Amino acid sequence: MLVGRKLDGGLVIEISGQYGDPQCAPLFFPLQRELNDLFKKYCVDDYFVSLEKISIIFRISGEITDFEGDGPERFKFIRKGSEFTIDFVVPKFKWMGKSEIELRLLINDGLIKCFNIFIDRSISFNEMNDKDDLLRDVGLVLRDFVQLN
């Protein structure tokens, strides 16, 4: 199911994940789900000219799989699907033994970097429609995300 889909077919922002350690999923999946709900709630405008989807893939390294990176990597613009994708790689030493608030702040910082890349690339592809609204709405998502319930 696509997360964030507007009734008129607007932008979808979706967070998915690939976890390289059995200990990752219980820590990151609830945060991933929460972010998807927040993006669906706040990010409902047409920020881009033709872009239909933004996909951010959490690649959380661990004992089984090391995704060999740190932070946003492998940006792609899939023109056929009108989609931006990016991997957000987290090495094991950055998540292992961290508290929930530390993980939220880690993800928050990574998402800021991801969206800065999306904005820069969308401008270079003449795809940006409303940068200010996008920054405002993503800011609302991240504000709610870093506050513990």
Score class of each variant (00 low, 15 high):
F93P: 13
N116H: 11
C24G: 03
A25P: 15
V141K: 13
F48Q: 11
I101F: 09
I119G: 14
D137P: 07
N126G: 01
V138E: 05
D130M: 03
D45H: 04
L140S: 10
R74D: 02
N116L: 01
D66M: 03
D87A: 05
D70V: 00
L27I: 15
E34A: 09
M1H: 07
S61C: 07
Q32G: 02
G17S: 07
R59S: 02
I119M: 14
D45S: 08
I15T: 09
G4T: 10
D133M: 12
S82C: 10
G4N: 05
C114F: 09
G110W: 06
D46H: 14
D137S: 03
G62N: 11
E83G: 00
F84L: 11
S61W: 10
Y47V: 04
N129D: 03
L111P: 15
I54K: 15
E127P: 11
L31S: 09
K53V: 02
E34P: 00
G20T: 09
V44K: 10
L111W: 15
A25C: 03
F48D: 04
P26T: 06
E83F: 02
L106S: 12
G71W: 10
D45L: 09
K6S: 04
N126F: 08
E63R: 11
I86T: 07
L111Q: 05
L134V: 03
I86S: 06
V89Y: 02
K76P: 00
F93M: 05
R5I: 03
L2S: 11
L31A: 12
D37E: 10
F125Q: 13
E73V: 00
S55F: 06
S122N: 13
V146D: 13
V146Y: 07
F84P: 11
I101Q: 14
D120W: 07
V44P: 00
L27H: 06
G71I: 00
E34L: 14
R79N: 02
K98V: 08
L35M: 13
F48V: 01
S16E: 12
L2H: 09
I13Q: 13
F115S: 02
T65S: 02
V90H: 06
F28H: 01
I107C: 05
L135K: 15
F28C: 04
E127R: 13
A25W: 05
P91D: 11
E100K: 11
A25T: 14
K53S: 03
K41V: 05
K94Q: 11
F77T: 01
V3S: 12
L35V: 08
F29R: 12
F39Y: 15
R104I: 06
F48P: 15
N36F: 06
G110E: 10
V141D: 07
P30H: 12
